[in-house]
Computed example of a mutant assay.
Amino acid sequence: MNLSTVTSRAAAALVAAVAGFASYQHIYDVASTAGEHVSVAAVLPLAIDGLILVATLAMLDDKRHQRRPRLSARVALVFGILATLAANVASANPNVTARLVAAVPAVSFLLAVEVLARTGKPLPVVTPLAGLVDQPETPPVDPRDYAEPIGPVTPPPALTAAKPRTSRPRPRSTTSAEKVARAAAKLPAGTLAQIAAKAGVSESTARRHLPSPTTPVAAATPINGTPVEVSA
């Protein structure tokens, strides 16, 4: 505790003592005029002004332990303030000036108790500005450097379960030569017209696609009931 703190606390204590003495005398006079016993009138100021001090200390203890001020302490503080003001004003002569002067000791005592019991709040810590200190420039941060790697993408179950469609090979169309060859094989003694009709082609097409140009085929018109073999 430095000298400034000791001096301020001593000055506040002196003000509280003077104001307390004046308030004590006013309350004593009011109690004596009201017909109280001398001993009661002597200790009544201590009960009223002391109640203010007790309530203030109780509220400070709650604040120190991070609790809400108890209701009894707040009620005691309000009652002590009203009682000491009423007693000090009642002791004065019935005029405005006298009553204002009589209220000064009570108010001074209340403020002195608050100064002695409470402490100021600490100032916020001020950090030095970044522009006042030369700092090395840092390269800009690329957010992609800190991005989490993306794993393999798993397709949905519906896509994995589906089987690829397989196209059936279309049957190869039979050529005219194959048709003529098959018809000729089925009708070895058939005429050119019969082979063409069996293969479903014209006679010229059948003649062109016969298996062998030297293969004898029956003539279209038989002679005397016997087919005439002609070369295709």
Score class of each variant (00 low, 15 high):
44 L>H: 01
45 P>I: 02
46 L>G: 05
47 A>D: 06
48 I>V: 12
50 G>H: 10
51 L>H: 01
51 L>G: 01
53 L>Y: 05
56 T>S: 06
57 L>G: 08
57 L>I: 04
58 A>Q: 07
58 A>F: 05
61 D>I: 08
62 D>T: 09
62 D>A: 10
67 R>H: 09
69 P>L: 12
69 P>F: 08
79 F>S: 02
79 F>D: 01
79 F>A: 05
80 G>M: 00
84 T>F: 04
90 A>K: 00
91 S>Y: 06
91 S>H: 08
94 P>F: 10
94 P>W: 15
94 P>E: 14
98 A>N: 08
102 A>N: 02
102 A>C: 05
102 A>S: 06
103 A>Q: 03
105 P>W: 08
105 P>L: 05
106 A>N: 00
108 S>T: 05
114 E>M: 09
116 L>W: 03
116 L>C: 05
118 R>C: 07
122 P>I: 10
128 P>K: 12
128 P>I: 13
131 G>F: 12
132 L>M: 11
133 V>T: 13
140 P>N: 15
140 P>I: 15
145 D>A: 08
150 I>R: 13
153 V>P: 02
154 T>V: 07
156 P>T: 05
158 A>F: 13
158 A>C: 10
161 A>E: 09
161 A>K: 15
163 K>R: 14
163 K>N: 09
163 K>A: 09
164 P>Q: 13
164 P>R: 11
166 T>F: 04
167 S>G: 07
167 S>C: 01
167 S>V: 04
169 P>R: 15
172 R>G: 07
172 R>T: 03
175 T>L: 13
